[in-house]
């Protein structure tokens, strides 16, 4: 079967690629577009390591077909902050030592950013339920939850 031609934007840049009809977006990002920030932890939608946003909606990129994203806007961890201008979530995760191995971190950042876009003032419980799809085996989540709450406070302009 021949490949499918797709146009989309990734982190604001126009991209054009050919992919197999059954090729998932995660593989397109990693193998074709050299964006390896999104990780494959399971390939079945259960770990959240591959989280990206598709037209602003949080998705598991291992469950989206590359061929489906024609005309869409995709954001990955690579599009969220840069080394000299980190997003508050990135800064607070670092300040709280909220990553140990860091393999879950890109997915956590993408997912938490999507949460704060929808709910700038989440409770601890809301953060915990939102991030329930992002597995972290290292941290026990404590420092991640604190980092997200304090980043949210900073983004709201709370003095805390």
């Amino acid at each position: 079967m021949s490949k499918i031609h797709v146009n989309a934007t990734v982190n604001g840049d126009a991209v054009e690629f050919l992919c197999e009809p059954d090729e998932v977006l995660l593989d397109v990002l990693r193998d074709r577009l050299n964006l390896t920030g999104a990780k494959e932890g399971c390939g079945t939608g259960d770990c959240g390591a591959c989280s990206v946003t598709l037209n602003g909606r949080l998705v598991a990129s291992c469950l989206v077909l590359g061929a489906e994203v024609e005309g869409s806007a995709i954001e990955t961890v690579e599009g969220i902050g840069t080394a000299d201008a980190l997003h508050p979530l990135q800064r607070h995760l670092l300040d709280h030592a909220a990553l140990q191995c860091g393999i879950c971190t890109p997915g956590i950042i993408v997912a938490a950013k999507a949460l704060l876009a929808e709910n700038p003032d989440p409770s601890e419980e809301e953060v915990r339920f939102w991030l329930a799809g992002n597995l972290c085996r290292c941290t026990g989540y404590d420092k991640i939850i604190r980092a997200v709450l304090s980043a949210a406070a900073e983004m709201r302009g709370d003095s805390a």
Binding site: L86, L99, T105, I109
Partner: peptide
Amino acid sequence: GLDKVTGKAMF
């Protein structure tokens, strides 16, 4: 840390 929050770290 920086590489790990920006997606640059190579696993």
